[in-house]
Design a protein around this nucleic acid. Structure first.
Ligand SMILES: [Mn+2]
Ligand SMILES: [Mn+2]
Ligand SMILES: [Mn+2]
Ligand SMILES: [Mn+2]
Lengths: 216, 216
DNA sequence: TAAAAAATTTAGACTAATCTAAAAAAATAA
DNA sequence: TTATTTTTTTAGATTAGTCTAAATTTTTTA
């Protein structure tokens, strides 16, 4: 099928192109910790395989077959993350790097059986949607806590920052996926936010508020 | 750590050297479906890393650190095979190739947690012993059915041929790991064997009898 | 709109892993 | 023990993926 490097490029392009549908050489290079010249080489290879639309100097987008592969890898990544947390009791801040490796296990049948074994979960430990075996997934809108007004609230359903340090910080503050929260105050001075969670009140920075996503 | 190719070479050398402690270039080449010249190149690399003892023209053996790596890979291979059969309901003839890929997932912690999750199984679906996290495993003697006399019997505890076709054949004859059997007759003409299993009697060739291992 | 800066591609080199063909060493046979 | 065969190693190429440095194109700034 495709090499490990090709799969990583397709996935990176998919994530970068979610917004404007287009990814630049430098964006890809920085997201894969590689050099722009290496990216150019690979873009030619992927274009030859009709997995991306590549116009030199103009950036790239995925073709339908490229997108199908990318979504397949994301499906595997998120299912393995779910497995690691739900079955092997890893913490949500420990699983990403492991899943980066496991997402390249090639068997479709394996991943479909894993999906069934776990009861067809809809979201990974970070709240991200898990594509089903046809590549479909829900894409409901979430709001960053920083965009919510006082006395509004909702359920924590996602994060924008997936770094271990941020996830550990959320654990400590008991702000995890599924928690119902209510914004009780916004400090004018630094835009930090006071949040009611369960019986506790916690105080978080504007930056943290910007990286926590809730469903209203 | 080590590359995928290096891991495969170490594992191949381990399996080949089980008997006489030594593996030849050609043996390694044929077990990895590669050419002798490629093997020579890799042997130099592994010797540089002190993972094998290599004397040109004399074959190789694993050093203690090479053996430790090889056993670690075999542990992963067999634990994943167990997982695939016990948790994902694959058949015993479907899991080897999948495990060939999964055995290279690098995390030790992952495999130790998987081991715990499954209750520290001692044998894989083919009866082969699973090394524990220290690399220890039991090595009790098994006898091929072809070496057993009439009216003797025991429990099927291993196979020498791991091919899908042989495993499917055993499934069909209901000769699977854990079955208690008794040899009721040995045909003089072709050394084929009549075996009592449960309430049935099955007739198997000398070759098949040679590839079924029992504990007395 | 011309100059400067930034982004991207090209040129040329490197490593890991593989191959074929030829040379060398070891094992076997006459 | 010499000749033949088999095994193993060496020599020289190839492919995927990466790099640095230089050239080119695009974008921004003045
Ligand atoms: Mn992840
Ligand atoms: Mn995730
Ligand atoms: Mn196997
Ligand atoms: Mn096995």
């Amino acid at each position: 099928m495709n090499t490990l490097a090709e799969e990583n490029y397709l996935k990176a392009i998919y994530h970068l192109a979610v917004n404007d549908g287009n990814a630049s050489t430098n964006q890809i290079a920085s997201s894969l910790n590689t050099k722009a010249s290496s990216v150019t080489d690979m873009l030619k290879k992927l274009a030859d395989k009709s997995l991306i639309n590549y116009i030199p100097y103009q950036g790239v987008s995925l073709t339908p077959s490229g997108e199908k592969i990318a979504i397949g890898i994301i499906r595997k990544h998120r299912l393995w993350e779910y497995f690691l947390v739900e079955k092997l009791n890893f913490k949500w801040d420990q699983v990403h790097d492991l899943a980066e490796e496991m997402e390249h296990i090639s068997s479709e049948e394996l991943i479909d059986r894993l999906d069934k074994f776990m009861g067809y979960p809809k979201h990974d430990p970070h709240g991200d949607p898990i594509p089903d075996c046809h590549g479909r997934f829900d894409t409901h809108e979430l709001k960053p806590v920083s965009a919510v007004t006082v006395n509004e609230g909702g359920t924590i359903s996602g994060v924008r920052d997936h770094s271990s340090s941020f996830l550990q910080y959320l654990d400590k503050k008991q702000l995890t996926i599924g928690c119902k929260i209510m914004i009780t105050d916004i400090i004018e001075y630094d835009h930090s936010v006071v949040v009611q969670t369960g019986n506790k009140e916690v105080h978080i920075s504007r930056e943290a508020a910007n990286n926590i996503l809730i469903a209203l």
